[in-house]
Amino acid sequence: MRVEIWSDIACPWCYIGKARFEKGLAGFAHRDEVEVVHRSFELDPGRAKGDTEQVIDMLAQKYGRTPEEARGMEANVAANAQAEGLGYRTEGRDHGNTFDIHRLLHFAKARGRQDELLSLAYRANFAEERSVFDDSVLADLGVEAGLDAEEVRAVLADPEAYADDVRADEREAAEFGANAVPFFVLDRRYGISGGQPSEVFAQALEQAWKDREVSALVPLGEDGVVCDTDGACEVPGSGAQV
């Protein structure tokens, strides 16, 4: 069975959702027969490469909030991340264009190191003081993930390397009707939106495994918290977005 996950490195609920999905998968009896593929989705595709700003400043400006209110929203997300055992810095994080990260993730997929690179990039972006919007940091992360340093630098230096793969993923997300992430597709039959609890993923895996004759994409469960194409990320239970 194949599970495809559309996500963006800038999305905190993708970071949290990945951890929750992995917890659900860990208890699945057929986990060794599940192939997980990460797909590209940009939350801020119109932002120019190199145009970065602090997340708190971006949130305050985008939603007309004070810096204190923006910090409060980030603290709510941080609490959800920490509940999953994830590190999360609420200050000092950058926001920027993620196209190069997605290109490098496709290269990593071709080398069998996609999940390793994605995990490192999430940790660098949300838990460490390392800007994933800096090519030198991306190059270091690629090497840490087990990729060849020269090949990584060559991919980053060529703006068209794996660009078509990123765009193909994004077109496919649009065809599925996905306008927010994370978005999970199980065996091209079942769709799950948002960073659901691990129990929801566990149930979905069981259902998808048992029923493999459905031809259309079927939503499973209620929508979970997501980040959408406007850059808004929901905070559960608060009615607010960050």
Rank of each mutant, 00 (worst) to 15 (best):
M1C: 08
V3A: 00
W6S: 08
W6L: 10
I9N: 04
I9T: 14
G17R: 01
R20P: 01
L25A: 12
A26T: 07
G27W: 02
G27P: 01
H30W: 10
E42V: 03
L43T: 02
G50S: 08
G50R: 11
T52S: 11
I56Y: 00
L59C: 03
R65T: 05
E68L: 09
E68V: 10
E69W: 01
A70P: 09
E74Q: 15
A75S: 12
N76H: 13
A78E: 10
E84V: 04
L86V: 03
G87W: 04
R89A: 08
D100H: 10
A108M: 04
A110E: 06
L117I: 11
L117K: 08
L118A: 06
A121S: 15
F126N: 03
A127K: 03
E129I: 05
S131V: 06
S131E: 06
D134K: 12
S136H: 14
S136M: 06
L138P: 00
D140Y: 02
D140Q: 12
D140C: 02
V143Q: 10
E144A: 13
A145H: 01
L147G: 03
L147M: 13
L156W: 06
A163F: 09
D164C: 03
D164N: 14
R167I: 12
R171I: 04
A174V: 07
A178G: 07
A180S: 15
P182H: 13
P182N: 13
F184G: 00
G194D: 04
K210G: 13
V214W: 03
L217C: 11
V218N: 11
V225R: 00
V226L: 05
D228K: 05
D230W: 04
V235M: 09
P236C: 08
P236R: 09
G239N: 06
Q241A: 12
